[in-house]
Design a protein around this nucleic acid. Structure first.
Lengths: 297, 297
DNA sequence: GATCTCCATGAAGGCAACCTACATGGTCGC
DNA sequence: GCGACCATGTAGGTTGCCTTCATGGAGATC
């Protein structure tokens, strides 16, 4: 019953193949295969079984992988307690973020971290809501969002904390008849052409709510992921679009107008694996992140 | 942050010296000393400091030793879950017991375990109540007793479970004027000479309660640990003595008569370290032990 | 106060275990 | 059927853990 073996089973369950685990841990598949055999010999149970071209955990393997979470979390708490006793948190925290939330939060975070012994390694990726959870494998904290609940789809077993709530506004080109409105209702906007996003991507849910609220079908002239591109298209007058309030730069070419009558807020959520979040440095960064988020409104 | 190091610190805190830990784990003090230096180098903190001719844990060492308890308990739960899934519990359970309770419980336990894949390694020792807790270092289960509370003195941090409650009776030689009584009150017995036990040992508390209830001072003609020896002295008419009801063999030479008016019951308690008790085999033995204890009354 | 014992520690060497490199066999996709 | 990917087995190198032996300090004993 060695921790190394538990961890391997956990990683294998999460990454799927020995090759993936090997790549993530800078070892060879052969080494891991030998570890598995050693573990099975020591425990006297089959932990994995071949399935098509890969492996699958047996019942015993699942039990040990579950246990690995507990054991590694306990271990991380010890590390955290030790770090806490040593005073200032220190170390490197790997953050992955969806770009818009990163744009809103990271400048504030980095300025708060200046002068501390904490450093950040940042990566951004534009994914569907449900895909952020998997990125916690490679990052200590993943900044995702959720349009409906407070925990994004797919992140059920993970640590999660809402660091901000951000209204999603309608971007209206300057000169558009609606540009002077203080608030927009669903029936105000369903007649216009829309710059939309692919299904499952940020704000698609809100577009569907607009359709549900009015019974109309929106005219989607394009489906675009990148908000910067959306902004430039709106500025050019191509149509309306949804844009997050805090992470969209002010512009003379369009105005952001609040939506009323449909729920148009996203929760910006920090996700992480329990053992990673237990690290003192990660906890400290998380607190700063929440503080930055609180100031956004 | 390796488990081996956490465990070493925990053991060191509990056993006191590197030599003791080395003996218990079949290694040399030198090996452990090197492990400590390695751990300190990896963590960048002093974990132990020299004190007189031995070592003492630093604050960081205490933190890690505390954490070791959690981590090892989590690890033991994994092992237990795995064992549970494999069906029948199996393995060897090391039991240490105070002799009288062992005499009452072990025959029943062993007969219940016959035919299973569980085996018992048994050791007995006659100690003061507070010393049993320390024996959990060397045994999976320690059967101790407590005259006042339900958890023996010194066993506060340990797992404990009351497996039986046993009345302590007065052994009266046949032919003694009191031998015909159905129940004895404190004032009935304080005038007689007593076969007592050393202070802190089984039943000493009850003798003190007799004195407190009557204001008298008992005449202690001897102080003896071993109940078999006590029995033979009572049988010979040397005096009265306290003997546990279930673990004293019937004899024509004396009678056991219940005491009234003072609390004269002991809790027979199974003690164990959390990580040991989490083992499936240990849990199974513990259940059987409780079942045997329940039948005693 | 000299000696003995017990404690921790250090250097040197044996040995076991882990890992890499390379080769093999099976399964899926094109 | 060819290539890609996956797991696995063998051989060999390297790391690191442990033992043995020797040293030094602190109490205990007489």
């Amino acid at each position: 019953m060695e921790i190394r073996h538990l961890e391997l089973l956990r990683d294998l369950r999460e990454r799927g193949t020995l090759g993936a685990v090997a790549a993530a841990t800078y070892r060879t598949p052969s080494a891991l295969s030998q570890q598995l055999r050693t573990a099975e010999r020591e425990l006297g149970v089959a932990l994995v079984e071949p399935v098509s071209r890969g492996l699958r955990l047996t019942w015993a393997g699942e039990v040990l992988a579950d246990g690995a979470d507990d054991v590694l979390a306990a271990l991380a708490r010890v590390q955290s307690a030790l770090d806490a006793g040593r005073g200032e948190p220190a170390g490197t925290v790997r953050i992955g973020t969806l770009p818009s939330a990163g744009a809103a939060l990271m400048p504030g975070l980095l300025s708060r971290l200046a002068g501390t012994r904490l450093s950040i390694v940042l990566e951004d990726f534009d994914l569907a809501e449900a895909e952020y959870a998997a990125r916690t494998l490679d990052h200590d904290l993943v900044i995702a969002h959720s349009l409906s609940a407070d925990v994004p789809a797919g992140a059920e077993g993970l640590f999660s904390r809402v660091v901000a709530r951000e209204p999603i506004d309608v971007a209206v080109p300057t000169g558009h008849p609606l540009a002077g409105a203080a608030v927009l209702r669903p029936e105000d906007v369903v007649g216009d052409p829309w710059i939309a996003v692919p299904r499952g991507f940020p704000f698609a849910t809100i577009l569907e709510r607009l359709e549900a609220a009015t019974g109309a079908t929106l005219e989607r002239i394009v489906e675009i992921r990148d908000n910067r591109l959306v902004e430039s298209l709106v500025a050019q007058g191509a149509g309306l679009a949804l844009l997050p309030r805090f992470s969209t730069p002010p512009s003379g070419a369009y105005r952001l107008i609040p939506l009323a009558g449909v729920r148009a807020t996203r929760a910006i959520v920090a996700l992480g694996r329990r053992d990673r979040v237990a690290r003192h440095a990660v906890g400290a960064v998380l607190d700063q992140l929440a503080a930055v988020g609180e100031l956004l409104g």
